[in-house]
Amino acid sequence: MSEPTPLLQATGLAQRFGARTIYRDVSFSVAPGEVFVILGGSGCGKSTVLRQAVGLLPPTAGSIEIAGHTITGRAGEAGRAVARRLIGVMFQSGALFGSLSLLGNVSLPLEIFTDLPPEARDAVARVKLGQVGLADAAALYPAEISGGMAKRAAIARAMALDPPLLFLDEPSAGLDPITSAELDRLILDLRDDLGATFVVVTHELASIMAIADRCLMLDRNAYPDAGGVIAIGDPHDLAANSTHPMVRAFFHRTLMPATAGEP
């Protein structure tokens, strides 16, 4: 079986803040139709990798291609402009626009980037909200809804223009297990129905096991001087077969050997 062309290709990413190197040599590729999860402990740079991948933060080193368009480096401006039409992003807090209703939030990208007449925009936005189970909440404002609804509305907005690649930053953080499981279901449904590709940042073990085709595990002590990738692959395979102590500790929810021997 030949490798499909990757939708997202990251090569040798590094991030330094001042003298501190958060991570280096982070490379991965995401194939079309895949649910790719970036995981790791708190503070290892998961969200920073996501910010780099969507073009919000220029990496200190390394390059990123989205569907063959390089979005990093000096020539990245044109690539970013193209790539932004190919991606949708759900931020951790939802980042819905407070001055617009949910319908307004979802129809804003349609209004700016399509020639749809207003009634068609509304219809499309209602369908998107229906897909995430928020058909009845279209008229509500972000301040009037719960955290789980905000995340679902943000997913609806992210897929307003049917981008082939969706980035989700901690979709299940701060949600109860049932809502979290519903979001997982939604991600898999969208993947199966629309063929969308997902890059999901999370550290919810149950969620990872449920949705991830492949995962990338970051650790802040991967190198003596910096963080980086400690494992990449099928999460079930990693859970069963990895010999890396940190990977084992993560998947089996045990303490790390160094800290486990407390009296």
């Binding site: 910010r51 919000l56 991606i87």
Partner: peptide, 10 residues
């Protein structure tokens, strides 16, 4: 993060 959301939407 609403500004970020605008930027990534283009």
């Amino acid at each position: 993060q609403e500004i970020d959301a605008l930027v990534v939407m283009g």
